[in-house]
Amino acid sequence: MKKTSMNGYLAAGLILTGVLVLLIVAGYFWTPYDPNAMSVGPKFAKPSLQYLLGTDNFGRDIFSRVMKGAGTTFAIAVATVVIGAVFGTLLGALTGYFGGLADAVLMRLGDILTAFPSILLAMVIISIMGPGKTVNVVLALGLVFIPSFARVTRTAYAGLRDANYVKSARLMGASSARILWVHILPNIMQVLLPAITIGFNNAVLAEASMSYLGIGVTPPDASMGYMLSEAQGMFGAAPWYALGTGFFMVLLIFGVGLIGESLQRRDGEVD
C-alpha cells in the first residue's frame, strides 16, 4: 500500500517535471511570440487565449517569456547541481574512503562554509568574480553546493569502506578507483539521488533570490528569478506576471520535490 503511494509520488513528479521540460525544450525552438520583442500585444493585457499569461508593461507576451525564462533557470539549476554533485561526490568519496588528515581538514572547512547562508556565500563569490555574467552565477552556486554533497557522500562512502564486499574487492587487487567508482558509487545512489533533487530545488530558489537581488542573470537572458523581480514592479498593473511566473516556478520545484521524496522514502523499504 505504502509502496503504491510512493510510486504515485514518483509518477506524479515525473509527469509534472516532464511536462515542464517539454515546455522548456519547446521554448528553445518556438514560442508563441518573440519573448523579448516589445509590443507584440497591448500593454498590460489580461490573460486570454491569445496571450495565455497576459502581457507586461512593454507589451511582451509573458507566457513566451516564461517558456524561455524557465529554460534559463532550469539550465542554471542543472549546471549548479552537476558542479556540486560531481566535485562534492569526488571529495566525499576520497575523504570518506581514505579518511586521514585531509578528511578532517576538508570536513571542518565544509562545516565552516555551511555555517553561512549559501546565498550570502554565493554573493561574496560573485562579487569577487564580477557580477552580471550567467556563467559566474552558475560557478558561484556550484561552489557553494559542493560541501553539502561532499558531506552526504562522505558518510555513505565511509559506511561502505569496510563492508565485506569492498574488502574482498580490495583483496582481489581492485584499484581504489575501481572500488570507489564501480563498487561503492552505485550503492550510494539512494542517498545521492535525493540529494540531487533537493540540490536542484535549492538551486532554483537560490537563482531566483540572486536575480531578485540583482546579482543573478541580466537582460536579455530572462530567468524566472529575474522575471519575478521585474514582475514585482508592476504587481498592481499586471499581477498575472508575478502569479504566472511564480506558478510555473512552484510547479517545477514541486515536481522535482515529489521525485526526490519518492526516492528518499524508497530506501527505507527492503527492496
Binding site: A163, N164, Y165, K167, S168, A169, L171, M172, G173, A174, H183, P186, N187
Partner: peptide, 29 residues
C-alpha cells in the same frame, strides 16, 4: 592478492556487491 589468495567471509550477504550480478562478481578477479 586475489591471484594467490582468496578469501571467504562469514556473512555471505554483505560479502557481495548488492548491485552487481553474481557472475560479474565471480569474474571480477
Amino acid at each position: 592478492h586475489g591471484k594467490e589468495i582468496g578469501v571467504v567471509f562469514q556473512e555471505p550477504m554483505s560479502s557481495m556487491d548488492p548491485l552487481m550480478k553474481i557472475g560479474e562478481q565471480v569474474e571480477e578477479v
